[in-house]
Amino acid sequence: MLKKLIALGLIAIVLCIGAYVYVTHQVANYIAQPLKLEHPQLFTVKQGTSLNRVLAQLESENLIARQMYAKLLRFQYSNLTQIKAGTYQLTPEMDLQNALTIFISGKEHQFAITFVEGSQFKEWRMALKSAEHLKHVTDDMSEQQIAEALNIDKSVLEGLFLAETYHYTLGTSDLDILKRAHAKLTSVLDKAWETKKPDLPLKTPYEALILASIIEKETAVESERSRVASVFTNRLKRHMRLQTDPTVIYGMGDAYDGNIRKQDLRKPTPYNTYVINGLPPTPIAMPGSASIQAALNPEQSHYLYFVASGNGGHVFSKTLAEHNRAVRAYLKVLRSQR
């Protein structure tokens, strides 16, 4: 009788071990299953969602196969139970364990919006309005209302944001992006102001920002920025008008059709530097950090003029006679290209 009991006990132990191995194997197969995806897909885990609820959500969205042992996953893989709320990107090469690892990491998918150096605030508003997965709170706000919401003491926001790429997660607002961009601009401008050259004809960081925006619109050639800055600095020191076309264009607004005529150069606007003395009242675009640095650390030169070379750069001149020759050469290049 005792032998039978021992035999039955051994059989029970073997069966239990076999059952444990089988279930463990099934759970391992379950967590190793590839996601049913052909393209990347966003997956949102709501606040307070448990592991079992996440698994049920994945099954209901047909991203994984159902299995009766799914609820045992939390016991075999207890390290995967601390699910964090957020929006994550799932990709075709992932399996279930990869997905759960991302969910516990809390590393939400980052979206991106890029603002080009030299762009204007009206273009930023259009880009923000069309950006997916952003919370659009500024669509019906005026520029003044946006300034107040950002605690900016300017009624015109042109130039007050640093142009670069900003990453954000689902639920971020367009106002949040603008706040970050303004903070970055302020940081870059303040640091550059601290290291500016002495005796610049610029009284405030805001004036430096205005000049930087003009430099940004005048040249896209990195090596020319500080030289262009020197031309404007030299002209300001001599109380010469800046006479820069981008300010004229900005002052024309929607009336600009791609051409500047003589009458446009003569027409008074607050931004027409062929008519006004000194700098315009506000920046004319969003400058990058390189143009800000150039405005505050211009090249040491005696140049007072520059004109396009027709080959992508500019020709710089110290006298009006030299400049007129450079202009004639440029016009000749243009005629040859027709």
Rank of each mutant, 00 (worst) to 15 (best):
L170E: 12
I102C: 02
H182G: 02
N98F: 15
A149I: 08
S173N: 03
N151V: 12
A147C: 04
L134T: 02
W124A: 11
D174Q: 01
E148Q: 12
F115I: 05
I177D: 03
A70I: 00
E117T: 00
L96W: 07
Q145M: 04
Q82I: 08
T169G: 15
V137K: 08
Q82F: 13
F103G: 00
T172W: 08
G171M: 04
I102K: 15
K84R: 05
L72F: 15
A65Y: 14
F103W: 08
H182I: 09
Q144Y: 09
P92W: 05
A70K: 06
A112T: 08
K154F: 15
F121I: 01
E59L: 15
L90K: 10
T165E: 12
E123M: 05
F121H: 01
S142R: 00
L100D: 09
I104Y: 14
D139R: 09
E164A: 10
G171Q: 04
E108D: 06
W124R: 07
I64P: 12
N79W: 07
F161A: 08
D95S: 06
E148C: 03
F161K: 05
T101W: 14
Y69W: 13
L134Q: 00
T138Y: 14
F75T: 00
I113W: 07
K129N: 08
T101C: 09
E148R: 13
M141W: 14
D139Q: 02
K107R: 08
V156C: 09
K122F: 12
H136I: 05
E117F: 13
T172D: 00
I113Q: 09
K135V: 02
Q110E: 06
N79P: 05
S142M: 09
I104T: 11
E93W: 11
L73Y: 06
Q82E: 08
I104W: 15
E61D: 14
L96C: 13
T165L: 15
